[in-house]
Design a protein around this nucleic acid. Sequence first.
DNA 1: TAGAATATCTACTCATGAGTATGATCGAGG
DNA 2: CCTCGATCATACTCATGAGTAGATATTCTA
Lengths: 234, 234
Amino acid sequence: MNSRRASPSPGKPSTASPSPWRARRRDREVKREAVIRAAARAFNRKGYHNTSLDDIAAALEVTKPTVYYYVTNKEHLLFQCFLAGIEPIHAAFREVKDLEAPARERLKAVLRHYGEAVASEFGWCMVRAEDQDLSPAMSRHIKALKSEIDQGIRRLIREGVQDGSIEPCDPKMTAFALAGALNWIAHWYREDQSLTPAEIAAAFVTIFEGGLRPRSASQVATRQPLRRRVRIAR
Amino acid sequence: MNSRRASPSPGKPSTASPSPWRARRRDREVKREAVIRAAARAFNRKGYHNTSLDDIAAALEVTKPTVYYYVTNKEHLLFQCFLAGIEPIHAAFREVKDLEAPARERLKAVLRHYGEAVASEFGWCMVRAEDQDLSPAMSRHIKALKSEIDQGIRRLIREGVQDGSIEPCDPKMTAFALAGALNWIAHWYREDQSLTPAEIAAAFVTIFEGGLRPRSASQVATRQPLRRRVRIAR
DNA sequence: TAGAATATCTACTCATGAGTATGATCGAGG
DNA sequence: CCTCGATCATACTCATGAGTAGATATTCTA
């Protein structure tokens, strides 16, 4: 993003003291990230609109102006959380890009990372950062990043259909279904943490892959063994 | 809810005029529903917190106190939207309850109605009405209603696994995946209305049913025809 | 036509929360 | 020890929006 210069000022002979500047800078960055994490946690728990910057400040045991010293405003704070959330997903796409495997396998790998990202600390922000809560400029920005991911998934689906590793389907609807199921994790994972993010992601991928209809050539439901009687009238 | 008496006061001989009372009552109910619809539309477009009651009033070309004349407060307004949203889903469960069909078919019917409900005017409210924005009492109420639906889906899945119409799976995770995919429709349907709710629901159900892995015994991706070359270094 | 509900408006109160102006503190370099 | 910039707190401003008090208008009944 903002290109950081490695050496602070090229005037002095940098033998004696380039360290304090650098250390300061690093400290500042660490604190900044702490602010963003605290915000993510708070948004996750109470929602964006129900979280005041005083709340975030309190969680960090500082005051509001201190928070403003590290971030420009609440909107940017949400945006940073959003970025932190989707970064792993972009990483997953990069990781998978040059893999010599059928597209279904590559898609599965991406979806696994996607699921883990959604179940992460930043998942809520990533999933719920909506145009509705943001300025037009930032809304466009976020929408573009989300669209990138969507297009990536659709492309993998198309490739899978072509290489025969995925059952022919509508890539757009399928991508919506997959991403939707995974996004929704952010809504219930707070309450129900009985599985790890990785386990959830794996379970979901299995479901997507197999579908509901039975694979095995077993009895395909001609009888209904334990259904109760149909009521007669009405 | 509040039991309405059919006849206003049992004193007078009701020959001449029970109608105006009744007409008024009906008018009032019509207007009340108009308020709720307007709220749903506004919430859908701008989100709950970004919608003021002045906005809703303006959409109806009245003023805020008029809105308060029909609903007690903003929270109840959201709750009413929520109820309007999930009613068709409960109806779907009732409708399917006494059907003499394999559980997978019954599940599919429910999911179709579910999808259509989520794509409806009240979909957003139904899906996004969260504990975070509501008082504890109302939060519990909504959570209970949502849980009912979740349990209903899980039960259908369990029954399907038992009667052999559904591939064995974890009912909880599968229900989360299905409901999540459908819930998410509320997020993108505003922007992309290229399909009708019914078409979307049908497409989703097909995806759920079949899964990604190809069914036909065609070539199962041993070659990758059109993958670009793997990059060599890093 | 008086008088009652019913329905709607004008003009407020009040709390909350984003963002800021300004001053205190602290640590490092001279 | 003194200065200077980085860091943080106190104590504000200001806009917004939920909810209300107290008219006023509009019907229908008697």
